[in-house]
Amino acid sequence: ANATVKMGSDSGALVFEPSTVTIKAGEEVKWVNNKLSPHNIVFAADGVDADTAAKLSHKGLAFAAGESFTSTFTEPGTYTYYCEPHRGAGMVGKVVVD
């Protein structure tokens, strides 16, 4: 992966760490389950068409520590995502593709 994001901080906060990553078109991001599972990755269809958002999302829940998801980003843009179970707690992140 060109960037790795922890799902849940080492201190146990319901956040993606780092909350924003910047990559180049064609690169991939890996999300690794860290703390306070379950977590998933759902891309919002704001600024991204619904098909792209669905293709990048991983709606299945990760329960085990170290379980991971990867997505490859082919188009430049800003992609906002969230964890469905913890969205209300502010577990939101962003991928910026140059």
Rank of each mutant, 00 (worst) to 15 (best):
A1R: 04
A3E: 15
V5P: 00
M7D: 01
M7P: 04
G8L: 01
V15Q: 03
V21E: 09
V21M: 08
V21G: 12
T22M: 06
I23K: 05
G26N: 07
G26R: 09
V29D: 08
V29S: 05
K30F: 04
K30S: 10
V32E: 13
V32F: 02
N34I: 03
K35D: 13
S37H: 10
P38G: 06
H39E: 00
H39Q: 05
V42I: 13
F43D: 00
A44T: 09
D46A: 06
G47L: 03
G47T: 02
G47D: 02
V48P: 02
T52Y: 00
T52P: 04
A54F: 00
L56M: 01
S57Q: 05
H58I: 00
G60H: 07
A62D: 12
F63N: 04
F63S: 03
A64T: 10
A65M: 10
G66E: 08
G66Q: 08
G66T: 05
S68W: 12
T70E: 11
E75Q: 15
P76I: 04
T78Y: 04
Y81N: 02
Y82C: 04
E84M: 03
E84T: 12
P85C: 13
P85G: 10
G88W: 04
A89P: 03
A89F: 15
V95S: 03
V95D: 01
V96A: 05
D98C: 03
